[in-house]
Write a protein that binds this DNA or RNA. Structure first.
Lengths: 356, 356
DNA sequence: CCGCTCAGTCGAAGCGTTTCGACTAACCGC
DNA sequence: GCGGTTAGTCGAAACGCTTCGACTGAGCGG
């Protein structure tokens, strides 16, 4: 394995010159640079990451802290991860994914205080997330994916739940629905202060109120069984419901199964719209789900770019950014059966809105 | 941030003594060790990972190379990852996940030749996997999850597809099924030489032959649509089929949807058994899928332990290990309708086998 | 009681970079 | 032609650890 010494010797320059040619920290004449680069190429030189990290106090490693529960990573998260990894790689950084949950604070502290991370991206952020405190205390730049309750001084990138819910409700209302139920994450998740669950709840209430409609939210466990139970509850509370908006990607399958079991057809009897869902998952269902496509990859790229700005200049400007999900109409939503004659009009209205 | 110097000064010993107390590379008296540990605790000392890596030529980082396609990570892979991460952490190593695919050989080469990885775990191994060559050439210890065609000199951990398929087919045969179709991954995937697809194909052929039955395999794209198409093909080729064994986790949902659409009930008309599936995913379906549970977490732990043995002693013994998936009977399998009177007997036979 | 071994400790030499201060020429405006 | 920049280069000192050789006593068989 060639070292900088070898390159310097071959190019007949000093070690520091090689370093400057590599990093551009000081000007180097074109002739010298060419010599150095040629020597590097000839020796197949790769800088030693550890030596570089020690001398520069920069590991060139960014951490992506993503708690991995038994549910696995959905296509949404995956898109985010690959988007972030690509952006990091383009900037000459490595992105390491660490399955560190909110519970493993010690492990996080160890990782960070070993100076292994130049910065961190936090996924599945909770409203009061202790990881934020740990990282701030240790002086590790960070960017949140999601938001804590108090975001002063913190950069974050998140989904614009408000706008996303409004668009979803708008779609259903345009189709002619009035009795719309929102199936959220579980009551426990809400109690824990999981941001997306709380924000969509509030956004749903506001959106329904905006149309003069009454909002009903039902929490559901993150599983097929939870979806089935939620549907039963929903039908009991609102027997004449014609549309369901679902936040819970896992529950939505149970929900569809239970609808089928009860002989209610989708979308003729009940329309279903799934929130923050990737096309891949939406296509798994029968019929394919009308869904709000999450901007996973863009989210990842923006998050990394923001983080790198913090890493490079300590006091970079705070960046707080929201991206909406785009409505994608598939087979699971349509005009309500009871609307009879207004169906055509509703369809036309929806199509118009969709193009907008 | 305290350094080893600070600790040495506070404990009134030399730096090397601190190092020995920390790593145990040389014997240290109990009294001295206590002094040193006390000093470390007082200063909240954490060794600098970069300095340590540079001096010892060991990064204490293991790479988990997992190509992330748009499908995301299933619960199976997630269990594997968390199992591996826990084992690595217990041994004082960091596990970094890198979404490096077979296409990013340059990136892999860079990562490895920067001496950033002490070893690597390769997921989604292909029969002729170029990543293996790159890592071997650079002298990075590696363990495969899956297998290449030629495994001489390579350690791997993999699912015992042979035994798994045999158990799945056995379950269906015990229930009384004779017309069993196997829905595999796509033709492209087979052509690419994706090991699990090829091995299950061969295992299926063998298992069916063992029961004197005729094997029919149908490839399916990894999507719901692929599953629907596959079902159509299957019914055309074997109109009287009573059971389906599915390798393709994505396709199985489309398959179920299409069965429902054609008015065939599961499991009364058609039994469905899903291979290498996590309980979480199996429960998503309606009815819940009888499946072969993948031993994800154990696989991860064993893989890391094997890898660490290679890292610690250069010429560690090759370890090639297969773990079977365990049959878990849920609602999607039962005796074939046509069997009439033998139903009870078949059910009893299946139950017996299940306990074994 | 002699020469050994061995546990326990120290000092110093790396590990392969970055970065700082210093030096040399060339070039500027005047 | 003179001080003052500036581009380009060098040597050496970090960076914070590990590891090697050497030293000191204590314990021990003969």
């Amino acid at each position: 394995m060639a070292t900088m010494q070898d390159v310097a010797r071959l190019a007949r320059v000093s070690v520091s010159t090689v370093s400057y040619a590599l990093t551009g920290a000081r000007p180097i004449s074109q002739a010298t640079r060419d010599k150095v680069l040629a020597a590097m190429a000839e020796l197949d030189y790769q800088p030693n990451a550890m030596a570089r990290g020690l001398a520069s106090r920069r590991s060139r490693i960014l951490g992506l802290l993503l708690p991995m529960d038994e549910r696995g990573l959905g296509a949404t998260e995956t898109a985010f991860v690959t988007g972030a990894a690509a952006a990091a790689s383009a900037a000459g950084y490595h992105l390491v994914l660490s399955p560190i949950g909110v519970g493993d604070l010690d492990q996080l502290r160890r990782l960070a205080s070993q100076r292994m991370l130049d910065g961190a991206l936090l996924m599945e952020v909770q409203l009061h997330d202790p990881r934020v405190d740990v990282l701030r205390e240790l002086g590790v730049p960070l960017v949140l994916i999601g938001r804590t309750a108090d975001t002063t001084g913190l950069s974050y990138v998140d989904i614009d739940f408000d706008q996303t819910v409004r668009a979803a409700v708008g779609h259903l209302v345009d189709l002619g629905h009035h009795r719309i139920v929102y199936v959220n994450h579980s009551a426990d998740t809400l109690a824990e202060g999981y941001g997306p669950a709380l924000r969509t709840r509030d956004a749903f209430t506001a959106a329904m109120a905006g149309h003069g409609l009454e909002p009903l939210m039902i929490p559901a466990e993150d599983s097929a069984a939870g979806g089935r139970t939620a549907l039963a509850t929903a039908l009991r509370r609102v027997p004449d419901l014609t549309a369901i908006l679902a936040m819970n990607e896992s529950a939505v399958f149970g929900l569809l199964g239970e609808l089928a079991a009860r002989g209610r057809s989708v979308p003729d009897d009940v329309s279903v719209v799934s929130m923050v869902t990737s096309p891949q998952v939406a296509e798994l269902a029968t019929p394919a789900l009308t869904a709000m496509n999450s901007p996973g990859s863009a989210l990842g790229r923006i998050a990394i770019e923001t983080l790198l700005r913090h890493v490079d200049v300590g006091d970079a400007q705070i960046n707080q950014q929201l991206l909406p999900c785009a409505l994608e109409v598939r087979g699971s939503s349509g005009p309500p059966r009871t609307e009879g004659t207004t169906t055509e009009a509703a369809r036309r209205r929806a199509a118009t809105r969709r193009r907008a």
